[in-house]
Every structure is written in C-alpha cells, then in structure tokens.
C-alpha cells in the first residue's frame, strides 16, 4: 500500500518521553499509522516497543509528547477509553475466558440485553442475537476454523483462540488493532491462518499495528516497518526498500538508518 503525505494518520504520536525511575524507555519517540495498512513495530529488547504500544493503547500515560487519534489530540486515562475510541489491543496473554463459548467471549464486557420489557426490567441477555451476530462476524472475516459459535473456548486450539480474539477486536467498529506477537505461540499452519486474518482486517480498511520478533512474518505482512531503537523511532522502511538483514542491522545499530 502506498502512503501519501496528504493523508491523515489514524493514530500518531510525536515526541513521546517516558521514564521509569532512572530508565528512559522512550526518549522522544514518534509514531504514525495510516488506515488500511499493516505497520510492523520491531526493535531489540529495551528499545521501548512495548512502552510505546502501552502509551498508544492507554495502558500508561507518557511523561511528555502528544498522541493524536484521527487528527485530534487525545489523552487516554486507561485502556477502556482507548477502546471506546476504537483502539483494540490484543495482548499476548489472550483475553479470553476458557469456560465461556465463542459468542459469549466475543461479547464479553459488552453484552446485548433484550430490548423488550424482559430485557429492560430483568436485564435478560439477548443470547440469540449475540450468537447470530457473532457468527456473522466470524463468517465475514472468513474464519473457517471456527465451526460452532457455541463451542467453549477451552476446547479450541491456540490459533482458533487467536481467531476468536481477533474477531472480537474487529467486531466492534474499531479503527486500530494492535497485535502483540499474535503468532508467537502458534504452529506454522495456524500462524498462516492468523496472517491471512490480519490481511483481511487490513483489506477492510482497519489499521493494524503488528509487534513481532518474527522477521519472515513481518516481511510477509507489513506495508511499512517502524524500527525502534534506544527509545526512539530511528527509521521507517518497507519490505520492498530494505532486505531482512538490512533491517536487522538497523535495529541492532550495526548499520545507520
């Protein structure tokens, strides 16, 4: 995907600084993410990747710097605010409840109540509608490994659980999805299913941030690669402009950006 300078980034940050005691995790980091792209964020351990992502997803507040969502400056107090704005973060530890079924997991924390008196007075859930819509979300994303929306998540494989988490993230009109090492725990085949799913999200116009250590996966998926080093963004490259070894060299400081 070609990016043009005139487009507004859906999510951007300038000059982020965050210190933990004596450790400077971010020292003026910039960030830009456009709609309809997969942006990989890579960096060595201690480069400030996860701090950057935590700032963007509202998990922590930066000491200095500005964050813009859809062109407007924002200050998220907690991840829920970011989520309400449309930024979904999928953590490595998947936020799924094993004993609940797929549909319940997709709607966990935003259950639908029946609209009639029973729903208003007795707060009865509209389980049928939730199942129907959850099934639609799953189908629309072309997830074929989830056969039965009433299956409990604990009987699913790692890749299927990942698919549930992604379907949930995509289901609620979010604009940005942040994925933290989505394929790290998966086998080759399952990883490729998840990669297909990430492409589907992008093709639907969502902006995807992919944090990954897996270079081949990054090169297969990313439109642009944000390279983080020593608390700053030192380069943004594309899989076309740089080779894998060049990217690794920049990331580790062996080559200049």
């Amino acid at each position: 995907m070609t990016q043009t300078a005139t487009r507004t980034p859906i999510l951007a940050a300038t000059g982020l600084v965050k210190t933990f005691g004596h450790v400077e995790a971010l020292r003026g980091a910039d960030f830009e993410l456009f709609p309809g792209e997969v942006l990989a964020v890579i960096g060595d351990n201690g480069a400030g990747k996860s701090t950057l992502i935590q700032c963007l997803s509202g998990a922590i507040a930066p000491d200095e710097g500005h964050i813009f969502f859809d062109g407007v400056e924002v200050r998220f107090k907690d991840p829920l605010q970011a989520r309400h704005a449309g930024i979904e973060t999928l953590y490595q530890s998947l936020a799924v409840s094993p004993a609940l079924d797929i549909a319940s997991n997709i709607y966990l924390g935003r259950e639908l109540r029946r609209r009639d008196v029973v729903g208003r007075v007795f707060r009865m859930l509209d389980i049928r509608t939730m199942r129907r819509l959850a099934e639609q979300y799953v189908r629309n994303l072309g997830i074929e490994t989830l056969q039965d929306i009433t299956q409990r998540v604990e009987v699913l494989s790692g890749g299927q659980r990942q698919a549930v988490a992604i379907a949930r993230a995509a289901a609620f009109g979010s604009k940005v999805i942040i994925l933290d090492e989505p394929t790290a725990a998966l086998g080759v085949r399952e990883a490729s299913h998840v990669e297909d799913l990430i492409r589907t999200l992008r093709d639907r116009g969502l902006a995807v941030v992919l944090i990954s250590h897996n270079m081949p996966s990054v090169f297969r998926l990313a439109d642009r690669i944000h390279i983080q080093r020593l608390g700053r963004r030192i380069a943004v490259v594309t899989p076309q402009s740089h080779s894998m070894s060049e990217v690794v060299a920049i990331m580790t400081g062996a080559a200049a950006a």
């Binding site: 829920l80 989520r83 409840s97 094993p98 004993a99 924390g109």
Partner: peptide, 14 residues
C-alpha cells in the same frame, strides 16, 4: 463466571 475463569482476561475484556 468470567472473573472466576480468568480474572486478568476479564479485566482486559473491559
């Protein structure tokens, strides 16, 4: 049920 199942997952689910 969700809190009893996995309290961290429940929290991350909002």
């Amino acid at each position: 049920y969700a809190v009893g199942d996995d309290i961290e997952a429940a929290r991350l689910s909002g």
